[in-house]
Design a protein around this nucleic acid. Structure first.
Lengths: 156, 156
DNA sequence: ATTAAGTATCTCAATGATTGAGTTAAAGTA
DNA sequence: TACTTTAACTCAATCATTGAGATACTTAAT
């Protein structure tokens, strides 16, 4: 009976844990953006541009960040003006633009991710390889589910 | 040697997993806010007001969301006008305001968290109680570290 | 009591990001 | 060729956010 009650407490508070973590990430990103004369949106966009396996397009970014096309154009204008990214026209389909990040963006990302990376490392050191595999699997499962939620139309 | 290389791949990609999860949460919150005539900030504020163990104050909210006092006041005006929260003056220190959420906010939160809760449940079902304890411990450790990062002044 | 300093919240003009409708240009389709 | 669709951009209007300052209240010192 002890195991059972412990379990349900864990289940209930997972949502709170996840929300808190998201909020902390957001606050850090917000703070960072302000310190570097960027907007929260710009930081989100830069992260997306970084994490994309191949150069992302403005319309993809529009979907990812849930913005209107006008907002994306303005955001990319700011990032390009500040020397963080470059717009490159696709040779085959000349309507399409690919977003490449430049040196300035890489440096900025390094500055941004260093403290976050240290924090993550501190956490990783506390767990065994097997525990980390479990944690990674959990995060992967969450990301899968959240992405599935994105497709559902009547889900919210 | 197999275990070693698998490990370092996991370590490197933890940051990406966490960023992706944060981004998914943000996108969902953004979408939800837009559908309900709220702002992303308003949704963040409501979640903070909900998750607080005891009624939170505007200045605490200011710290949590990293906003200026003017922005917080405007945000609370919107939430109060829409019937989600109520401002209550502290009887002992009449400078202080406590934020209470109302029925409208509870309903909204229920609508918001139902799909997220389903997604979370789907994930939780895939793991054993012991694995979930590990995942919860991991999230707790991350939250600890991220909160520590908040205090550090020269950290970014 | 009185004064000074500190704190919590709010006000407001200026800034500027976001929206939403419409435009341009390129690609696919009949 | 004309029609539709798609990608990205433009621009006026809207409205959240900033940042400086005002207001009201509390606390500590004299």
């Amino acid at each position: 009976m002890k195991g059972d009650s412990e379990e349900s407490i864990d289940l209930l508070s997972f949502a709170v844990r996840l929300r808190r973590m998201t909020a902390e990430f957001n606050r850090i990103a917000h703070e960072f953006a302000h310190e570097h004369g960027l907007h929260p949106t710009d930081v989100q966009a830069l992260m997306k541009i970084f994490d994309a396996p191949s150069p992302i397009t403005p319309s993809r970014l529009r979907e990812e960040l849930n913005l209107t096309s006008g907002a994306v154009t303005a955001c990319l204008d700011r990032l390009e003006r500040a020397g963080h990214i470059r717009r490159v026209r696709d040779a085959h389909d000349r309507r399409v633009v690919h977003l490449h990040y430049l040196g300035a963006a890489q440096e900025l990302a390094a500055v941004f991710f260093r403290p976050l990376g240290r924090s993550t490392d501190n956490v990783l050191r506390r767990f065994s390889p097997e525990e980390l595999r479990t944690a990674a699997a959990f995060l992967d499962a969450m990301n899968e589910e959240l992405e599935a939620l994105r497709a559902e139309p009547g889900s919210h």
